[in-house]
């Protein structure tokens, strides 16, 4: 499947819509083990992304993600700004100047983004972070967008029994067990939004 600039614009648009719809749920998850601002922070961030993309529509997939990433970093006051900003910006850099990409290209771009997130936050799989949704999604992406979305969703759910080892939740120690990580939950939303961006095409992807 060909993934052109329009696909990436629709992806960011779907992210903004889904984050807006789920902001309350994300904030509730964050209230349990964080500082109860995750939904609102991401809503503000993706609203700014939508505005930035509309103001100066980028010409390539890479430019869409780079601009979106930069906008998240500058508009979100919480840790999700630099983390998601790095995810998208690194992915955008990996895509380079190409006018379109394909599923393997998307996988490589997201893998680069996820690697950037891991370096920035110093987290590894199992630390109860967004990586626990993103790493399985990247691994599953060869099987299509639906497979990636399912893997991310499962990865997020699987953070419930984990002990948080990064961020504010880690101060809670054992009390972080039994709650879904809000970053993993929002990561699963972003991966699922890929499916929305693909629309009918995704039904037939390999």
């Amino acid at each position: 499947m060909e993934l052109d600039t329009g696909f990436f614009l629709r992806w960011m648009d779907a992210c903004a819509r889904d984050v807006d719809r789920e902001a309350k749920t994300l904030t509730e998850l964050d209230a349990a083990i964080g500082d109860a601002d995750h939904g609102e922070n991401l809503r503000r961030g993706f609203k700014a992304v939508t505005a930035a993309l509309a103001e100066e529509p980028p010409a390539t997939p890479g430019a869409v993600l780079t601009l979106a990433g930069r906008t998240l970093i500058s508009s979100v006051g919480g840790a999700s700004g630099p983390l998601y900003g790095t995810l998208l910006r690194r992915a955008g850099k990996q895509l380079g100047d190409a006018s379109s990409t394909d599923l393997p290209g998307l996988r490589d771009a997201l893998a680069a983004g996820v690697d950037g997130v891991a370096r920035l936050g110093g987290a590894v799989a199992g630390d109860k972070t967004m990586l626990d949704a993103l790493l399985p999604a990247v691994d599953a992406l060869d099987g299509g967008l639906q497979a990636a979305a399912t893997a991310a969703r499962q990865g997020a759910v699987d953070t419930v029994p984990l002990l948080a080892r990064k961020g504010r939740a880690s101060y809670l120690g054992e009390r972080s067990v039994g709650h879904q990580d809000p970053g993993a939950a929002s990561s699963a939303l972003l991966v699922a939004a890929l499916l929305e961006a693909a629309g009918d095409e995704a039904a037939g992807d390999e």
């Binding site: 970093i73 006051g77 919480g78 840790a79 999700s80 700004g81 630099p82 983390l83 900003g85 790095t86 910006r89 950037g116 370096r119 920035l120 936050g121 961020g167 504010r168």
Partner: peptide, 15 residues
């Protein structure tokens, strides 16, 4: 100090 303060500086340095 903590969290987003550290991550924001590191993200800016990386870029």
């Amino acid at each position: 100090d903590l969290g987003s303060a550290v991550l924001t500086v590191r993200a800016l340095l990386a870029e």
